[in-house]
């Protein structure tokens, strides 16, 4: 009896897998096709280099240059803030914390990762933005910096856990012989563990950048959403928030609607490019 079930089961599994893959491939192709429609009307170049975004006017007003810049700017601020903090904490976790305490701290980091982005946005709006307005005396606290700080907190768990994993291994591997030489822990961490973890740090950077650039709600709630050239303390717009805000207004099938898909595609292309660049950097710089 098991034999019949066996054959049936293997067929079922295969069918379900094919279905899943077709579904996923369909999603990707769908996004691609909806964007291609747009690029028949507006050239890729003028779309990504165009400085004005005004979907209510003519097609030549659909340029997302400022929005791409905004996306990159907010994400870079986030990475610049999150990377040193994350790496520092991962080192401390690898070298100084063990057993229960480590488990608890990892749990705390998981908590950070589990908080939904809309809650981050909510706190960002009520605390960060307000603080900017009252303390820094800005007319509006909604800014690249606010988005960057918020995103930094959001990507920290990814940076920490990616780095921590590799640092812990490196520490375990070298601790006995280093201790035998009478060298301090911090020296070992600084001279051996940190340099040996550069691959992990790069991986963490790419991962965090991907997260940051794709993040919607938290960023949208604190950056002001103005498609203008971004400055650190000024408003800006990112691609995900652009899509979130405007897809409700765009009539399905209109040029505006297709332009939103196209910006999604551009976002994904930028992410892919970043992944590729880092992949090759890593291969060429570290394979030796």
């Amino acid at each position: 009896m098991y034999k019949v079930l066996d054959v049936a089961f293997s067929k079922l599994i295969k069918l379900l897998t094919i279905f899943s893959l077709l579904l996923l491939a369909f999603v990707v192709v769908f996004i691609f096709r909806e964007s291609v429609v747009f690029f028949k009307e507006v050239s890729v170049l003028s779309f990504i280099s165009g400085r004005s975004w005004n979907p209510l006017l003519a097609a030549d007003n659909l340029g997302i240059f400022n929005i791409i810049l905004g996306t990159l700017y907010v994400s870079l601020v986030a990475i610049i803030l999150a990377l040193p903090i994350g790496v520092g904490m991962a080192l401390l976790l690898a070298g100084y914390v063990e057993g229960r305490v480590r488990a608890i701290i990892r749990g705390i980091i998981d908590i950070l990762a589990g908080i939904p982005s809309v809650v981050y946005g909510f706190i960002g709006l009520l605390v960060l933005v307000k603080w900017f307005e009252t303390r820094l005396d800005l007319s509006s606290g909604e800014s690249v910096l606010a988005g960057g700080i918020l995103l930094a907190v959001m990507v920290l768990p990814y940076v920490i856990s990616t780095c921590h994993e590799s640092m812990e291994k490196a520490y375990r591997r070298h601790a006995p012989s280093s201790q035998a030489l009478g060298v301090s822990r911090s020296y070992l961490l600084r001279e051996i563990v940190l340099p040996e973890s550069r691959r992990a740090i790069i991986a963490a950077t790419v991962l965090a950048l991907g997260r940051a650039m794709g993040e919607t709600m938290a960023v949208m709630m604190v950056i002001g959403n103005a498609p203008i050239p971004p400055t650190l303390l000024g408003k800006c717009q990112t691609i995900p928030s652009l899509i979130a805000l405007e897809m409700g207004m765009a009539e399905v099938g209109s040029l505006h609607y297709h332009s939103l898909f196209a910006s999604g595609l551009v976002l994904m292309a930028v992410l892919l490019a970043i992944n590729l660049v880092f992949y090759f950097v890593r291969r060429s710089a570290f394979m030796k």
């Binding site: 769908f30 996004i31 909806e34 993040e215 995900p240 899509i243 999604g264 976002l267 992410l271």
Partner: peptide, 14 residues
Amino acid sequence: GVPSIVIGLFGYTF
């Protein structure tokens, strides 16, 4: 790697 908002866009359209 597809950002969640783009998946939302897909869900909305399709």
